[in-house]
């Protein structure tokens, strides 16, 4: 496959099915325009960026001008005008992570991948593409320095571990988030952000080690809040009754619509805990 062909394959058109999903996103909200951000995520899940075609499709669905949709798309940094590779690697270089080593990690990755900020690796047969970017604080400061891959946490990185990480990604090796699931592609991630669950919620730990430091110290010392009301047997009986009632109602309403349905995970998508993710809660 030539590079040219590979680029073409990467931009499938906005099909009728995608259009139907765009419309469906709008129905989640009292006013359809509220769905514009998830709609643009859906466009990226199909085309790897926000294309002119994607903007036109959103505008059409919402009855807006393309200028209005463009105005929104260009405001938010997660929407990309240039094609994003299979994996988006974001190195936090806000102050805390930068000081803790994020700057050095970012420099090393730029050098290793031979790209600048917000640039994508040259396509090579047999290797996945990576788009490298420095990102702002990603709410994981207690795990600094932090790297995000397709917006999944890769905690406690070093320049060496980050190089290994991108090498694994490029070669298509399975990579797991330190506090999440197997890393999926950028486009799959964008589909989840558009509100279409991928069934991976049950992977990964409850919490990473840093999140548990206070809790474990409290448990070690027997510390906790003052005693409150304790759930009674009546509470438990009521809970069971409520569950029976919900099950009966679900059976009765089976097959019916509901705005809720668009939010629901597909049934039967339970997964085992991710084994051996290092930071797993004990």
């Amino acid at each position: 496959m030539t590079q040219q062909q590979s680029r073409q394959v990467q931009t499938p058109p906005i099909s009728e099915d995608v259009r139907a999903e765009l419309v469906e996103i709008g129905t989640r909200y009292p006013q359809a325009r509220s769905g514009l951000l998830p709609m643009l995520h859906l466009v990226q899940s199909v085309q790897g960026r926000v294309t002119a075609e994607g903007i036109e499709a959103c505008a059409e669905v919402l009855g807006l001008s393309t200028a209005e949709v463009s105005g929104v798309a260009t405001f938010y940094t997660m929407y990309k005008r240039r094609p994003v590779g299979d994996y988006h690697v974001g190195v936090c270089t806000n102050t805390l992570c930068a000081v803790m080593g994020g700057d050095e990690i970012f420099e090393r990755l730029k050098d290793h991948l031979d790209v600048g900020n917000d640039e994508t690796t040259e396509p090579v047969d047999g290797l996945k593409d990576i788009t490298l970017e420095h990102v702002e604080c990603n709410a994981a400061c207690d795990y600094a320095p932090v790297v995000m891959v397709n917006w999944e946490f890769m905690d406690h990185q070093t320049p060496e571990s980050a190089v290994q990480l991108v090498d694994d990604l490029r070669q298509g090796n399975e990579v797991r988030s330190t506090r999440g699931p197997r890393i999926c592609t950028f486009r799959q991630a964008e589909r989840v952000l558009a509100g279409f669950p991928d069934g991976l919620a049950d992977e990964g730990p409850s919490a990473g080690i840093a999140s548990l430091n206070g809790l474990q110290l409290a448990q070690l010392n027997g510390w906790g809040p003052p005693p409150g009301r304790v759930g009674t047997d009546a509470d438990r009986a009521q809970a069971v009754a409520d569950q029976d009632r919900a099950a009966a109602q679900a059976t009765a309403e089976d097959g019916q619509e509901g705005a809720a349905a668009t939010q629901a995970s597909p049934a039967g998508t339970k997964h085992d805990d991710a084994p051996g993710t290092g930071d797993e809660a004990q």
Binding site: N150, F153, A201, A264, S265
Partner: peptide
């Protein structure tokens, strides 16, 4: 925020579970 993908997943699933349990939707409990 969109940049915390796994949190989005966990929220989506929790909301779906709450609907299934009759804690969300019509005529709650």
């Amino acid at each position: 925020r969109g940049e915390i993908l796994h949190v989005v997943r966990r929220l989506q699933q929790a909301v779906a579970e709450a609907y299934e349990a009759g804690y969300l939707g019509r005529d709650i409990l």
